[in-house]
Design a protein around this nucleic acid. Structure first.
Length: 587
RNA sequence: GCGCCCUUAGCUCAGUUGGAUAGAGCGUUGGAUUCCGAUUCCAAAGGUCAGAGGUUCGAAUCCUCUAGGGCGCGCCA
């Protein structure tokens, strides 16, 4: 409907330009919007106000000329000029009723569009270090990223979802060393566990299984391990130096092969846990991309060579620096350390180069807000490699603060005292978690009320929406019990023009807004628009249900109403599915 | 200190990308229902859009400054 009006207006403007009534070189973007006030019709356009300025004419005069040039449409009953020069459109009743048939014909496809034209988009999200289970902070990124990706699919994009696995680097070495030390404790060795090691229970589990498989194969004497290692923090030393020395000792005592075995035991087990966790959260990926593969494939080397060849690298104090400050970053960044190892940033450059080489028209990275400082350097690297940095969009997701019983739930990663995503799902369920996470704009700090999320009451929007769906199912369930026939023929022959009540008109308007909601939510990467829409749609259904009986009316009205709520059920189902939620038949 | 983000009703948040009289939910107050599921519905009260300037036909939305809050400023990942 919206695009129909846009086409009408575009036609009128073209006519006026050809006539010379309006300058031919006038540029404008047609913006048709839904009205807030019913007195202003169904759709409004402020184009005359925009053009009046550019053409130096009176807005109302321009509006009148546009309206005069509009071609006639059976879907529009009235066009009005109002206020300073708004053009208001009033929809014909049959145009509104058409939405019901559109929905029933399209079924699960209702709301999908082709605006994306099959453009290839990559969405990378979560990408948490596999050093421990996902926590509730990752959960928001997961729910948000999945919803954005699914919305883009619905809008006709070809989406590639990807998880970047940080399976290399110091944090992973710390994990491997932590696993090994716990293993040694189980072998009977006695020592003080490093302050900077990973202390979570899952590390114990991994080391236990490691020992079950390999017995004492990796056992070394504590004395030998800690000989000459600088003191840990509690002993008055530096915890970073302490752990780094332990990592080196671990590698040296185990040898490359056995070290890799211990390392992979930690990596694989945690990664398997993360995969399973996300799967149960309804989040699926096309690809799990290994950071390590960037080194083995030579991508890192190649990226650095390209930068070096184009003069964007320089050597200083034994290290190689990328001149990112030449591309808007606040300072230059090291890519190869003086010990010859490349930095995490070097991998990141290679990874983003690889994304560009894969030919996506658009690359979306979803990061935690604490990483915002990395955006300029990544964009700088893309520019230095000769790519358009605007192909990359980095979306930042703010943290979520949990509340239970009105109190903030305290969390800190270092002590291992964080609420995991798995625990959250266990407490409030998948549906509530998915919904609550995406109900706020991503750049907005979020208060996550656990009590509300798990309450079975109308305060809880998840229940409210799902109940609307279940309620329709319940009504349709009554048909058989009451011996009322309502089959495909009844649907096809339904007298939809019997839908005249204000609640019915409201509901029809809500239903017709769904495709627009999907499109704008997708194009702006704002799934919260869909979440809010679903709440409004559910409210319209509940209000209708309460105001009118469906099953006790005369057959024509009854059938029309049943068709309307069947369509509503379909849209509720489609919207809930897009957010990864169930649409229950009964609750 | 520098940079990025946030600030809208008592609370949690929307606000169709610059449009018409700023909206929901919760909470508060008052009301409805012999019923297809009371996990429902209707109504009222509640606002200096953090503050001050500016841009223009028109600003919660764009620009500048100020205040408050969050985050980031490693040859860590």
């Amino acid at each position: 409907m919206k695009t129909h009006i846009q086409q009408l207006l575009a036609g009128a403007l073209q006519t006026l330009q050809q006539q010379g009534t309006l300058p031919a070189d006038l540029s404008f973007d047609l913006h048709v919007e839904r009205t807030r006030d019913k007195n202003h019709g169904d759709f409004a356009c402020a184009i005359a106000l925009d053009l009046a300025k550019k053409a130096r004419r009176k807005p109302r005069e321009v509006a009148e000329q546009i309206v005069a040039a509009l071609s006639i449409s059976a879907l529009i009953t009235k066009v009005e000029i109002a206020g300073p020069g708004f053009i208001n459109f009033f929809m014909a009743p049959q145009a509104l009723l058409r939405v019901v048939n559109d929905i029933l014909e399209a079924g699960e496809a209702y709301g999908r569009s082709t605006v994306g034209h099959g453009q290839r988009v990559q969405v990378e999200f979560v990408s948490a270090n596999p050093t421990g289970p996902l926590h509730v902070g990752h959960g928001r990124g997961a729910a948000y990223g999945a919803a954005v990706a699914d919305l883009l699919v619905a809008a006709g994009f070809h989406v590639h979802r990807e998880y970047y696995v940080n399976d290399a680097g110091r944090q992973m070495d710390i994990l491997a060393t932590s696993v090994w030390l716990r293993y040694l404790e189980q072998c009977g060795e006695e020592f003080t566990f490093p302050a900077n090691g990973y202390r979570g229970d899952y590390v114990q589990q991994i080391s236990m299984r490691l020992r079950q498989m390999h017995n004492d194969l990796f056992r070394r004497q504590a004395q030998q391990i800690f000989a000459g290692i600088p003191a840990d923090e509690p002993a008055g030393g530096d915890k970073e130096q302490h752990i780094d020395a332990l990592i080196e000792r671990c590698k040296q005592l185990l040898g490359a092969g056995h070290y890799r075995t211990v390392f992979d035991a930690g990596l694989n087990e945690i990664l398997a846990d993360i995969r399973d966790d996300l799967e149960q959260f309804g989040v699926a990926y096309e690809e799990w991309f290994s950071e390590r593969s960037l080194t083995s494939s030579g991508a890192v080397e190649r990226a650095l060579q390209r930068l070096k060849a184009s003069g964007h690298l320089y050597e200083q104090q034994g290290a190689w620096w990328f001149r990112s400050s030449a591309f808007g970053d606040e300072k230059d960044r090291v890519v190869i350390r003086d010990n010859g190892q490349h930095t995490y940033f070097a991998s990141d450059i290679a990874y983003h180069m690889d994304k560009m080489e894969r030919g996506y028209t658009r690359v979306i990275d979803i990061w935690g807000a604490d990483h915002h400082g990395y955006i300029p350097r990544i964009k700088a690297a893309l520019a230095a490699l000769g790519y358009d940095p605007n192909r990359l969009d980095v979306l930042l997701v703010q943290f979520a603060i949990l509340y239970r019983g009105g109190e903030k739930v305290q969390m800190s990663t270092r002590s291992g005292q964080f609420v995991t995503l798995r625990e959250l799902r266990g407490e409030v369920g998948k549906d509530a978690a998915r919904f609550f996470y995406v109900t706020r704009k991503c750049e907005q700090h979020m208060d996550f009320d656990l009590d509300l999320a798990k309450s079975e009451s109308n305060d809880n929007p998840v229940y409210y929406i799902q109940y609307a769906h279940a309620r329709i199912c319940s009504v349709l369930q009554q048909l058989a019990e009451r011996g009322i026939s309502f089959g495909p023929d009844d649907i096809r022959n339904a007298r939809l023009d019997r839908l005249v009540e204000s609640h019915e008109i409201d509901l029809l308007h809500m239903l017709s807004r769904y495709p627009e909601t999907i499109e704008t939510a997708a194009l702006s990467c704002q799934p919260h628009q869909l979440a809010h829409y679903l709440r409004e749609l559910a409210a319209a259904l509940h209000a209708y249900y309460n105001a009118h009986a469906f099953l006790r009316e005369e057959p024509e009205v009854r059938s029309a109403r049943l068709v309307l709520i069947t369509a509503t059920r379909q849209v509720l189902y489609n919207g809930l599915s897009l957010l990864g939620m169930h649409a229950p038949q009964r609750m």
